[in-house]
Design a protein around this nucleic acid. Structure first.
Lengths: 338, 338
DNA sequence: CTGAAAGCGCTTACAG
DNA sequence: CTGAAAGCGCTTACAG
């Protein structure tokens, strides 16, 4: 268990100064070729690697970026992280992944911890708790301390920073319009509570599509679920109670659960009952029949966010204005619609 | 955009030495109560937070751990990361997540980068490329430099370190035995190439179960797939060619793909055709019918690995022996079996 | 009770 | 061409 070798150690062993070693290894023209050669050979032989921590302290930048997501065992969020990781690694940055567990308190603690110098900036998607509480002081504080942040997907207008979102309303609008176009007359909506921005916006798209087609919007046809990974019973009752010929689910989980409920009732998909979900994840692909869904392109979102963050980090001089990048969604046609 | 305040700045503003400020903030008994009070009040007002990087350099430990996984958009691996993150955060550690993309080269680069001082140790699951190449010098090098690593799930005996695995053979054995018990006579196996440890071990379990029941093992009934997220065509052909009454898939993806192929052929699940998969992920839960599967408890694996790593980091004095922690699997009964 | 000094591992402006 | 010094932000053994 030999310790890693340092410049100091090399300088001692080679009887030169630390400065000389440092310069030689960075190939400075100040140093003679002969000295460089000796030093480089020795460094290589002993597998010298500069200590990142020391460099960070010296340079006042860590080349680390953080990302805080509500959960990680989730196709959409892990796709975002994937996009961030890929871009960041390409630019020489490491990614520190943190979870808020949908909790306001944990988000606050995590944001403060990240602000303690171990990273240069971070990306975050608001937790459920924070959106419910509408308290964003922790983020504004961090920004005030000079740390750039980029918000993705679950954002708020109460924090001034770069953002990457998708057009949730439009995505939902297209999906529901498609259902109507294919002949659906009675379309149910399964969504989240209004304080969750994406739920609210997607519900708007549903309403717009119905209105636009001259349908009436019946509040009875809308189910709002608190629990993002549960509510199977409620969905079952909802599907059984109304005689829908189509359902739009605001997550792929909602959609597939609705589809399974309809199947259990003996409905044929898509002849008797069509379904469209949101998020093109593994659930949609593996369901039988496979789900038609609105793809959010999570990896793109992550990539864009990482790009904006790193851009800002590397152009600290010129103050850029904050941007909001709105990405397009795509309707992916599969077997759950006609 | 005010910069974060440092001890130096506080000492200047309060006309005391840096040492005094440092001691006061750590509540040292050396400092008078009055001085402490003043300094603490000032620090609080200006929201002083010690710079983590400086602490890391001073303490020679970063309180960061790394994790390298082949991919992240994957239920099993994201579950492992989840388990690691939870435990590590509780212990005051940050988690740096890196991807190898199943590539040997990327794994080498990533391991070397992580060894450059930004973390205290890391957890890793071997990439496909590394297992194919059977080259582990990068890991042994890192260990030689004094950085502890813990391997999870995809491990090798050529690296001496702590490991957390599941009993793959036994998990597969139980699954296939269950199929036999329920009356299956002709059971297909969909697995990975032998150089992937988990594929090899699970295939062994399949063979043991058949042999134990007095069945003959027919190599024709075994399909080995290189592509972990593909092979739909091969699976379809395989299912169509043989008249299986059950299939055991070594991943949930293989299992669900086999099930869909059987369904398309008009087979009823589980009356005509039973399926069991491996990994209790979202795919298994959302498939229709829901998949019976061998749960690997990914989150537990992550938690155990983080525990072993942090244990080693915090007990550096006494050299602990390397351990291999073998976790039990559980067969989760759902709708794809009788 | 307070402060100057050394040190963690590095870089770089400045002397020689 | 080489090296001593200062500095990044902190802690701590040692003086006073």
């Amino acid at each position: 268990m030999k310790q890693r070798i340092t410049l100091k150690e090399i300088s001692k062993r080679l009887n030169v100064s630390i400065s000389t070693v440092s310069k030689a290894l960075s190939d400075s023209p100040e140093i003679s070729d002969k000295t460089k050669e000796v030093i480089k050979a020795f460094a290589k032989e002993h597998n010298y690697k500069p200590n990142n921590i020391a460099l960070s302290l010296k340079n006042q930048k860590t080349k680390n970026i953080g990302i805080i997501v509500p959960e990680i065992v989730h196709h959409f969020f892990s796709s975002i992280i994937n996009g961030v990781e890929r871009y960041a690694t390409g630019k020489g940055y490491n990614v520190v992944v943190c979870l808020s567990d949908e909790s306001f308190e944990k988000e606050v603690i995590t944001a403060q911890m990240l602000a303690n110098g171990s990273i240069d900036g971070f990306i975050l998607s608001l937790s459920k708790g924070t959106q419910e509480k509408q308290d964003f002081h922790h983020l504004n504080e961090v920004i005030n301390q000079g740390m750039p942040i980029v918000m993705v997907d679950r954002v708020t207008e109460h924090v001034a920073c770069d953002k990457v979102i998708i057009d949730d309303t439009q995505g939902a609008y297209h999906a529901v319009s498609y259902l109507i176009e294919k002949g659906a007359k009675k379309i149910g909506l399964i969504t989240m509570p209004d304080y969750l921005s994406v739920g609210r916006l997607r519900a708007q798209g549903y309403i717009q599509a119905l209105t636009n087609a001259g349908f009436e919007v019946n509040p009875e046809h809308v189910l709002k679920l608190e629990e993002l990974n549960g509510g199977q019973e409620e969905i079952k009752t909802f599907i059984e109670k109304h005689d829908f010929d189509a359902v739009f689910g605001v997550t792929e989980y909602f959609a597939v659960t609705a589809m399974k409920a309809a199947q259990k009732m003996g409905k044929r998909i898509p002849e008797d009952f069509s379904v469209i979900g949101f998020t093109d994840g593994i659930i949609s692909q593996c369901a039988s029949p496979a789900l038609t869904t609105v793809s959010q392109h999570g990896e793109d979102i992550g990539k864009q966010a990482a790009m904006m963050l790193i851009d800002r980090l590397e152009n600290e001089g010129r103050e850029l204005k904050y941007n909001t990048n709105v990405l397009k969604t795509t309707l992916i046609h599969r077997e759950s619609t006609k």
